[in-house]
Simulated scan of single mutants.
Amino acid sequence: MQLNQALEIFMHGEIGIPSAENRSSRQQLAGLDILHSDDVWNQQRQIADEAIVQSHAPAEVLALLADYQPSVDHRITLVDRPTSEHAAYHAAGYRHSASEVLLARSLNNLPAPDPRYAVAQATTIADMEWLNTHDPAKRAWLTVTRLLEPRLRHSFIRLDAEVVARVRVCQVDPAHSYVTNLYTAPNYRRRGIAQALMIAVLQQAAALGECWSVLIASEAGLPLYQKLGYQPLATLTVFEPAEASE
């Protein structure tokens, strides 16, 4: 998969499926992609902006954002941009908040399922309520709208009467999906649980006729995804307003 195609899938996946609940959108300012998130998380509406920077110099990005007037909660994500540009963002009042990697995997030659862990999928209101109550990250990450959206799939592993890992998959189009919201409870890490969950959702995606899976990995999560056969396509360097950390 080429970088530009993976970026398109990432941006569609980040915006999510439009609904009365999810009013997120994407627009371009002089070729600069802006992802405007306007959605419900943890039972509260949250608004944020993200500028995806591929070819614009810092001065251009900062001028365009000044005209756009992003929300207080916003970020600038640099896609394979030189580190020499970082000083300009620091000088403008931003801090480096994260380093991430854009990855993609063909859904051919998938690993075999892990028989140690049973993977379930949320399909009912009862599933949703139980998952939100027992979420390992203490987030009400499922809503009725998301539950009933056929292009969203919500999978989890349950052990000891608790959710120990969960993940969401967004089908961007019939051939491509975007993986997000993967989380494993701290006390259950390093047991192969996240790997088992990911193998299951990849197997399901392939069974549905999808051809490629795309996701964003943190530095900590990168080894897992590379072990699963994901290939890195770009490094993403994220900047946020410095005052947001104060």
Rank of each mutant, 00 (worst) to 15 (best):
A140E: 10
L159N: 02
V101Y: 15
E243W: 10
G93A: 11
Y94W: 14
L3W: 03
Q195N: 05
Q69P: 03
A51D: 04
I9H: 01
D39M: 12
R158N: 06
T237H: 13
W130D: 06
G192S: 10
T133W: 12
W141R: 14
D160S: 10
A66Y: 01
A242C: 12
H154S: 11
I193H: 02
V238E: 06
E162I: 00
P223R: 12
R139P: 01
W41Y: 14
V169E: 07
V144L: 12
S213F: 01
F10I: 02
H56R: 00
A244V: 07
P113D: 06
G31A: 08
I47A: 05
E219T: 15
E162Y: 01
L215F: 06
L103P: 04
I9F: 01
L32E: 08
L202V: 02
Q231K: 14
A234K: 05
T180W: 03
S37M: 11
Y183H: 05
A104F: 02
I17W: 02
L65K: 10
D127R: 11
R105D: 09
V179D: 01
Q171V: 00
I52N: 01
S177K: 01
P223Q: 13
E85C: 14
H36T: 15
Q69I: 12
S19D: 04
M198N: 03
V61T: 08
L102M: 13
A165L: 03
G209P: 04
